[in-house]
Design a protein around this nucleic acid. Structure first.
Lengths: 117, 117
DNA sequence: GACAGACATCGACGGGTGTCGATGCATCGA
DNA sequence: TCGATGCATCGACACCCGTCGATGTCTGTC
């Protein structure tokens, strides 16, 4: 067989033209990718992962993004609910950091089965 | 440094808290991920990549997805414009196939820089 | 205890998106 | 040439999403 999208953990359905990706799993994956389907959220991930301490507070994001504080908080909530960001509240500040392995797992989802060595 | 999102081809900005992902590139990537942010489109990719000949016509997709023909055509157009699917018209039928390397390139986009060996 | 600051939540608005039925446009066969 | 078929496009509808100002909640400080 040629390159085949072996969506992670979907089991194997009929091999010839059958639906390979179950409906529930498609919904879960779509929610994850929807979290990435916004320019500002991608920039948030970039800033968080690029910060020296690998964690960032909301006040550090509002200015470089050019967005209001409620909007930034909204995007952060979506990223946390998607399992991509961790939220840790220390005192008055809330620090966000990447969930280790989350982006890698999502990336592996769209890789063809025979592309992983 | 820790895991760092070295978004492909963005160059390196200020290394400490600066914005690592440029605004135009964030828009391009968001458009790509938006194409994946729908359950039916994910299932379309799964069916296309899983078909025996690695190419599928619209009539083969409408039934398993439970969608009307115009809706399937609409989703296919989005996937083609995102550069994920190829469209080849032979006679009356239109065959769709995965663009080689497109999904891999998109996956590499969200991988931390030091996760690629 | 009262105040100030950081963040989350709420309600509202404009714009985008998924879906459908109807229609148009090619191509193939009789 | 004419009808049939597969696909794309159009218009319309309901719904979701990103953004904002206003407000609420909690923590630390005086």
């Amino acid at each position: 067989m040629s390159t085949r999208l072996d969506i992670q953990g979907m089991g194997c359905a009929t091999a010839t033209g059958g639906e390979l990706l179950s409906v529930p799993r498609a919904g879960v994956l779509a929610t994850r990718f929807k979290a990435l389907a916004d320019p500002n959220r991608l920039r948030i991930l970039s800033i968080v992962s690029g910060s020296s301490a690998a964690e960032t507070c909301v006040c550090d994001l509002s200015a470089p993004l050019g967005l209001g504080q409620p909007t930034v908080s909204h995007h952060l909530k979506i990223l946390v609910e998607a399992g991509l960001l961790n939220r840790e509240k220390r005192g008055v500040w809330a620090y966000y950091s990447l969930v280790p392995g989350a982006l890698e797992a999502l990336a592996a989802t769209i890789l063809p089965a025979d592309a992983t060595p």
